[in-house]
Simulated scan of single mutants.
Amino acid sequence: MRCVLVTGASGGIGAAAATRFAQAGDRVALHYVKNRAGAEAVLASLPGEGHVLVSGDVQDPDAVSRIIASAITQLGQLDVLVVNAAVAPSADNRHVLGEIGYAEWVADFRRMIDVNLLGAANLAWGIADHLIQRRSPGAIVNVGSRGAFRGEPEYPAYASSKAGLHALGQSLAVALAPHGISVSSVAPGFVATPRQLSKLDGAEGDALRAQSPFGRVGTPAEIAEAVFWLASPQAVWSSGAILDANGASYLRT
């Protein structure tokens, strides 16, 4: 049994990842920022016992310290970190050069970088310090994006933050290997999370499904399976990897 912290676990990929670890007999700390009701619903649905909730805004370094400390206190230790909490593209943070003002541009970049990259870096420091002090192996899995490779012209801050997250993971993979800690990333394409269902049901739904030769989009459970494998002891030799999980919708060389 492992003790796992999953950030952004009140729904979507985070909830699916938490469920996958719980199904394997692991104990899970479900992190949320504002959606406590969603996190409580996920908590109630998890198989097994001993799962807990933790909260805090990962863009705040002090809050990150509290998140890590709370998870360790409630679970007794941490063995795996899944970095899933992120500011995702939405109509509210679309930022296209030539269409928005400078202040909005700066604000969108700051928010996405603070949460998606700096928050991830601070979370990684927290669990790595804990594991090193325990002299214990462990795993960090980052949830990145295919947007890091193909570009996101309407959301360049998002693509930049995810590209940085992938590079962070590879850098930490080298730094933490001597301590027996693996670090890897999964790069999903479009995933049918609850907040994306309106797009799939709307006018752009067919175009989104057509991005993949499978004729559909991914599911949270499929991404969770990739996360679970990368966090497993069997995947330690894949430390530093970025696993594409996009249904062949974007192929990189």
Rank of each mutant, 00 (worst) to 15 (best):
V106Q: 12
G215D: 00
V186P: 06
R134G: 14
G240D: 00
G38A: 11
F21K: 02
V58C: 04
I13K: 03
G205A: 04
S171M: 13
R110C: 10
D244R: 11
A157D: 12
T7D: 08
I13S: 07
P188L: 08
E152R: 13
N35T: 03
G50D: 02
A231Y: 01
N122T: 12
A192H: 04
P194N: 01
I223L: 12
E204K: 01
A159D: 03
A22G: 05
E99Y: 10
T253Y: 12
E222L: 10
A192E: 05
V82M: 05
R135C: 13
I127M: 00
Q211G: 13
A37L: 11
V106G: 04
A121K: 04
F149V: 02
Y32T: 02
L53R: 00
S182V: 04
V186A: 06
G164R: 01
V141P: 07
G180W: 02
R110I: 02
L165M: 10
P61Y: 02
P194A: 10
I72V: 15
W125P: 01
L46Q: 14
E104N: 08
A120P: 00
A85T: 07
Q59N: 10
T19S: 14
V236E: 15
F109A: 04
D108N: 15
G144N: 08
V64Y: 01
G11W: 11
E222N: 10
L251H: 11
N246A: 10
A226R: 01
S249R: 06
G119K: 09
P61L: 03
Q59T: 14
A16Y: 10
V87R: 14
A24H: 11
V82C: 12
E154G: 14
A124K: 05
R27E: 03
P47E: 06
D62E: 15
G56L: 09
I242C: 12
R150L: 15
F109T: 04
S171Q: 14
V143K: 06
D92C: 06
D92N: 12
D201A: 13
L43W: 02
N246K: 05
A18F: 00
V4P: 10
V28E: 05
P153Y: 08
D26S: 03
L78V: 00
A124S: 15
V42A: 08
N246R: 07
T253N: 15
E222V: 05
V64W: 03
S10L: 03
G144I: 08
I140A: 09
P47W: 03
V83C: 14
Q133Y: 13
A9S: 05
G189T: 07
G126N: 10
V115K: 09
Q211V: 06
V106M: 08
A44S: 13
V227N: 03
R252T: 15
P156Q: 00
L208P: 04
G11E: 14
S182T: 11
A210Q: 03
L118S: 13
R94D: 07
S232R: 08
L208I: 01
R216V: 05
L176N: 11
A18C: 06
L118I: 15
H51P: 07
W105L: 09
S232H: 11
L75Y: 01
R20P: 06
L5E: 05
G189I: 07
D62S: 09
W229Y: 15
P188W: 01
F21M: 04
T19K: 14
F228A: 14
L81P: 00
N122E: 15
G247A: 10
P220V: 07
M1P: 12
A120S: 15
H51Q: 11
Y158N: 08
